[in-house]
């Protein structure tokens, strides 16, 4: 049976606010899923808490809506023990860069075979609009009436700093660009980190208009070619180039790089662990183990 986007829609009513960027991302992911060439039962979506974290409920796959920030940890256990599955994490900027920051960087460092989609809307939506670790400094929100004083994270720089083997960025409404990034992430063996700019039209509307609406500001990265006027020749295997491009913003260069920043091969955690299991000495004889060491007979 050839699957279509429709086969990946669950029977649950989608409950994001009308106009939310999450709808477009869900649609793009559902249309992309058949390309994986996997049966639905082999696919698992895991999320934490937040607006984005409702994602698994809407996918006709296996799924878990878990704990705030912990999805990468839970996915690590699943992917490591079940290498036959395609495991996806859907998270937000608060979920994975604030409360779950530790799990994100360690999943990337270990290169666990999971695909992480970070829906970045630069705000806490589900709790009604407090600033997030990606909100710009000076953001006036319910919890920062005089403007936020802390400096934001650059998610891509952070992921690169954690030595992620695959780092990319896409836009919620740019279906072809997003689909291409999903395709590349899925093909990557190991941890893939994808930041998706997502408009929260209720609490942070227009945060990404400079690249959603103003298409001329999009800088699509092409491996081996100069990246616009940045002076960087894009090379997906070159850490320095990827990092430099991660610092390119609308403020610094008047453009926003999109696409794959880094894609390098390194053995994944689950493969390495599986190899240790396969090469472990001994025959797993429990009776021999419990009777090992200094023993003595009575009677």
């Amino acid at each position: 049976m050839t699957l279509t986007a429709k086969d990946f829609k669950s029977d649950q009513e989608v409950r994001w606010c009308p106009g939310c960027g999450d709808y477009a991302i869900l649609a793009a992911v559902q249309s992309f899923m058949p390309e994986l060439g996997l049966e639905r039962e082999k696919i698992v979506f895991i999320s934490g808490i937040g607006c984005a974290a409702r994602f698994p409920y809407y996918m006709q796959t296996y799924g878990m809506h878990s704990i705030h920030g912990r999805a990468p940890a839970i996915a690590t256990g699943l992917a490591t023990s079940r290498p036959d599955l395609s495991v996806w994490v859907v998270t937000g900027d608060g979920d994975s860069l604030s409360i779950g920051g530790n799990h994100l960087i360690h999943a990337l460092r270990r290169n666990v075979n999971i695909k992480i989609l970070l829906l970045n809307n630069q705000i806490y939506g589900l709790t009604k609009g407090q600033y997030s670790p990606t909100s710009e400094q000076g953001k006036v929100t319910g919890s920062t009436p005089m403007g936020s004083v802390d400096y934001p994270f650059n998610p891509l720089s952070l992921a690169l700093g954690a030595d992620a083997t695959f780092v990319a960025r896409a836009l919620d409404t740019d279906k072809p660009g997003l689909t291409e990034v999903l395709r590349r992430a899925a093909a990557h063996k190991g941890a893939a980190f994808v930041e998706i700019f997502q408009n929260c039209n209720i609490y942070n509307d227009g945060a990404f208009d400079f690249v959603r609406d103003e298409k001329e500001n999009r800088l699509y990265l092409k491996h081996g070619e100069p990246a616009g006027d940045t002076g960087v020749t894009h090379d997906e295997t070159d850490f320095a180039a990827a990092f430099e491009l991660s610092r390119v913003t609308i403020e610094t260069h008047g453009v926003v790089p999109l696409g794959v920043f880094r894609d390098v091969q390194r053995e994944s955690y689950d493969d390495l662990l599986a190899a240790q299991l396969a090469n472990a000495k001994g025959d797993g004889d429990l009776q021999a183990l419990v009777a090992s060491g200094d023993t003595w007979q009575i009677g």
Binding site: M64, A73, I74, T76, G77, L78, S81, R82, H106
Partner: peptide, 17 residues
Amino acid sequence: AEDEIAAAGAALGASFG
């Protein structure tokens, strides 16, 4: 794991599988 939370979370993820 990176911490106690992830240790429990990974075990639960494995159990789901």
